[in-house]
Computed example of a mutant assay.
Amino acid sequence: MTTPDILCIGSVLWDIIGRSPSAMRAGSDVPGRITRIPGGVAMNIAMTLANFGLRPALLSAVGRDAEGEELVREAGRLGLMTETLYRSEDLPTDSYMAVEGANGLIAAIADAHSLEQVGDKILRPLSDGRIATEAAPWAGPVALDGNLTRDLLARIAASPLFRAADLRVAPASPGKAERLLALVGHPSACFYVNREEAGLICQTDFADAGSAARGLVQRGVHRALVTDGGRMAAEARGDDLRTAQPPEVLVTRVTGAGDTFMAAHIASEVQGMAPDAALSRALHAAASYVSGETPQ
């Protein structure tokens, strides 16, 4: 098997997104468009990494149902390595449903029950020789998402399979942000969160991304990157703090924006960009994404 540039561990599913150009509230019934596209945090990150020229491998659970077969074919067409997926015979392929209006995300439901049920079976390629072994663990970057259970994230934090890895972690949603507490204190974990998620992890309210990034580091996070919509973003590690302003764009979609930011930042660092340039490139990629363009 070809050696991947990065491992993407977490949710790989179908996104069903309803979007309307109208502002919406609870109970709204408006015209719009409904699309079904490959999604899930790990999948979104992998697709963006491929756009930046990297070769990502997917470690997740996908059913052998019709939806799963179609999803695997599409992932392969997009240049993602799928040989590392756990293919369940009896569990359905997961899905995510969201409704977005002109005023942003209205509501979303993530059905990642199959991923949660298979547990550490998705990690088998890290010990059976397809990617690595216990004696020779994976030493490259890993994009890890919070759709994994708190128990599995805790096991990953302590596992020798990840002792040499560069862990990059996303919470998947504010509702799952506290699952990342299992990785606080890990010597290489880098958290990619928004200001709300940082507040949930630290159990406080932050006024801006800079204070949120510092708060995470003080909480024990090795490194933190915090976004805040169109406001200033920040990165903190130790006593160092850098900030950058995202470009102003017309927002046409929001689901997947944080994943795009994370993937673009990882790709930029893997490709040797300096810290300030990597942060700026990631913010521009996310801005291009939410404006409806393809990040480059």
Rank of each mutant, 00 (worst) to 15 (best):
D65M: 07
S11D: 10
D145T: 00
A263E: 03
D128S: 08
A212P: 01
F206Q: 02
D120W: 01
A172R: 01
D151M: 12
R281L: 13
L183Q: 03
T260C: 15
E235H: 12
A154N: 05
G210R: 07
A132N: 01
R168I: 06
L7D: 01
A112T: 10
D208A: 08
A98L: 10
A26K: 09
G140V: 05
E235Q: 13
A132H: 03
A177H: 04
N147C: 09
Y192P: 05
I6V: 15
G32F: 05
A66H: 13
M273V: 10
L54C: 08
Q245V: 14
M262P: 01
E67I: 03
Q245H: 14
R150I: 11
T149F: 06
G230N: 11
S20G: 09
Y96L: 01
A267K: 02
A102H: 10
T227I: 08
G230K: 12
R281D: 09
A278D: 03
R64K: 15
A98T: 07
M273S: 14
A213T: 06
G129I: 09
F206K: 00
M24R: 07
S114N: 05
A108V: 07
A23K: 14
A26V: 12
D276Q: 15
E134R: 14
V290D: 00
L144T: 04
T252W: 09
P56W: 05
A212M: 00
G230E: 11
L181Q: 09
T48Y: 05
P171D: 07
T227L: 06
D240P: 11
A164L: 15
P141E: 08
R163Y: 06
G199I: 00
L49W: 03
L80C: 04
D276N: 12
Y96P: 01
C190G: 07
H265P: 02
S291Q: 13
A264C: 11
A136C: 11
M232A: 13
G27L: 10
P247N: 12
A61R: 04
T204W: 08
S20F: 08
E69P: 01
V142R: 00
L71P: 04
L167C: 00
E116D: 12
V193R: 05
G40I: 02
A274L: 14
I34M: 15
H222N: 13
G140W: 02
T133C: 05
A50V: 09
A61Y: 00
L152F: 06
R237W: 11
L58P: 00
R223G: 00
S60W: 04
R87V: 02
L216R: 01
S22R: 14
E100P: 02
P160H: 08
A57E: 01
G230T: 11
L216S: 02
E67V: 06
A244F: 10
A209F: 03
D111A: 12
A224P: 04
S188L: 06
T252C: 12
I34V: 15
D65H: 06
N147E: 09
V12C: 15
L279M: 13
V251I: 15
A233T: 09
C190Q: 09
Q245C: 13
P160Q: 07
G53R: 03
Q218F: 10
R155M: 11
E89P: 11
A170R: 02
S20A: 12
E69L: 12
G76V: 04
I34F: 14
D205K: 14
Q218W: 10
V12N: 11
S159V: 01
R179G: 00
D151T: 14
A110K: 02
G39P: 06
F162P: 00
A57M: 03
A98C: 11
C190S: 14
E70A: 15
V30M: 14
